[in-house]
C-alpha cells in the first residue's frame, strides 16, 4: 500500500460540507452520535454547507430509523455484512474510500474508545491532521477554518489547534460536551445507502468474542460524576443513599476518610490527600466538612456541589453550588426529581 502524505498542495476549495461519523455498535446507537450531529449542524450553518451523517454496519434499521428523526441533510449508511462487527481495518477502508469520493471539509468522530481507534488510522490514510478529544469547535470568521479547542496537560492548559493545509479537518469530539441535534418538526432526514467495496482479506484482526460489561468496580479516577459521603451520614447505611444518587447520575461513590476510618466503606472509595485524587465534572460532597486533606483530592473538579447542615462548614467556601440542609431530606428529593426529569426526557 502506498503511504499517504500531507502538505501536497491540493486544492482546498474542492472540499465542502461537514460530515460526522456516528457510532452504532451491536445495534446500539451511542449518544455521542446526536451530539456530533448537533455540533456538525452548527458548523455547517456557519459555513453555509450541508451536514452529512455516516453510519457503518449492517442490520441496524432501527437505529437508522431513529436517526432520521433528527436534523441532517443526508444520512449515509455504509452497508456491508463485513461491517456488522467492529474492525479497525474494515471501518477505515470503507471510510477512506467514501471520504476521498465525497470530499467533506470537516469530519467529526466521537472520542470514544472506538472513535479514537479508527480516527488516527483514517487520518493517516487520508493524509490529513487530526485533533483529539475536542471540547469546543468554532469557525474562524476571518477565513472559515476550523478552530479545534481541547485540554492539554491534564486540563491545566487549553490549546486551539488548526489544520491549515490539509483536508478534511478532522477532530474527535469528547462525549457529553456538545449540544444534541434537534428533532425534526416534521418529515425524515434523507437516507442514502452506500454499498462499499470490502473483502474478508481487508480485515486482518478478527473479533472472536464479545464480553458483557464487567461488574461494577470502583473507578473514581475516570468517573464523570462522584457523589461522596462524610461523617454527616451518621451510619454506614447512609451510603445506600449516596449509592442511589450516584447510580441515577451515572457516577461513582466517594468518601471522606472519617467514614473509611469508621469502617463504613472501603479505602478504595476515599478521596483526598491519602486517598484518590479525582477530577470529575461534578463532585457532590454530602455531609463532608471540607478539611484541607479532603479538598486536596477534589478541588480540581469542574463543579463542586456541597450539601451540609452547617452553614459555616468550610466546604461552602470551595463549592460552586451549596445547599444548607439535612442530607437525609435533600438527597431523596434530588433522586426523585432527577428520575422524573429523565422519564420526561425519554418521552419527549
Amino acid at each position: 500500500m502506498k503511504r499517504a502524505k500531507v502538505n501536497q498542495g491540493e486544492d482546498l476549495q474542492e472540499y465542502k460540507d461537514v460530515y460526522v461519523i456516528g457510532e452504532c455498535l451491536d445495534g446500539r446507537l451511542h449518544p455521542v452520535t446526536l451530539e456530533l450531529m448537533g455540533e456538525g449542524r452548527k458548523l455547517a450553518n456557519q459555513l453555509k454547507r450541508h451536514l452529512g451523517v455516516i453510519l457503518l454496519g449492517d442490520g441496524m434499521d432501527e437505529a437508522l430509523e431513529h436517526l432520521q428523526d433528527y436534523d441532517a441533510d443526508v444520512i449515509y449508511h455504509l452497508k456491508h455484512p463485513l461491517l456488522k462487527d467492529f474492525s479497525t481495518e474494515g471501518y477505515v477502508k470503507v471510510l477512506n474510500d467514501f471520504i476521498r469520493g465525497n470530499k467533506p471539509e470537516i469530519l467529526l468522530i466521537g472520542a470514544t474508545s472506538y472513535g479514537r481507534d479508527i480516527a488516527p488510522r483514517l487520518a493517516g490514510r487520508l493524509g490529513t491532521g487530526l485533533t483529539a478529544d475536542c471540547t469546543k469547535l468554532e469557525i474562524d470568521p476571518a477565513d472559515g477554518k476550523l478552530l479545534q479547542t481541547r485540554p492539554a496537560f491534564g486540563g491545566n492548559l487549553m490549546a486551539t489547534i488548526i489544520c491549515p493545509k490539509n483536508r478534511p479537518q478532522m477532530s474527535t469530539v469528547r462525549p457529553g460536551v456538545m449540544e444534541r441535534a434537534h428533532k425534526l418538526a416534521e418529515g425524515k432526514a434523507h437516507l442514502v445507502t452506500v454499498i462499499p467495496e470490502l473483502e474478508p482479506k481487508d480485515i486482518r484482526v478478527a473479533l472472536v468474542e464479545k464480553k458483557p460489561p464487567a461488574k461494577k468496580q470502583v473507578n473514581l479516577i475516570d468517573a464523570r460524576v462522584v457523589v461522596s459521603g462524610g461523617r454527616g451520614l451518621k451510619t454506614p447505611e447512609g451510603f445506600r443513599l449516596i449509592e442511589e444518587l450516584a447510580d441515577v447520575l451515572g457516577g461513582e461513590v466517594g468518601s471522606s476518610r472519617a467514614c473509611v476510618d469508621a469502617g463504613w466503606i472501603s479505602h478504595a472509595h476515599q478521596v483526598g490527600q491519602t486517598g484518590t485524587t479525582v477530577r470529575p465534572e461534578i463532585y457532590i460532597a454530602c455531609g463532608i466538612s471540607g478539611a484541607i486533606q479532603h479538598l486536596a483530592g477534589m478541588s480540581e473538579a469542574d463543579y463542586i456541589v456541597a450539601i451540609n447542615k452547617d452553614p459555616e462548614a468550610p466546604i461552602f467556601n470551595v463549592c460552586d453550588y451549596g445547599i444548607v440542609g439535612d442530607l437525609y431530606e435533600i438527597l431523596p428529593a434530588m433522586i426523585e426529581d432527577y428520575r422524573k426529569r429523565k422519564e420526561e426526557a425519554n418521552h419527549a
Binding site: 500531507v6 502538505n7 490529513t128 491532521g129 487530526l130 485533533t131 478552530l147 492539554a152 492548559l157 487549553m158 490549546a159 486551539t160 489547534i161 488548526i162 489544520c163 491549515p164 493545509k165 490539509n166
Partner: peptide, 8 residues
C-alpha cells in the same frame, strides 16, 4: 499537518 493556533 496540525499547528497550535493559540493556547490559554
Amino acid at each position: 499537518p496540525t499547528n497550535v493556533f493559540r493556547s490559554f
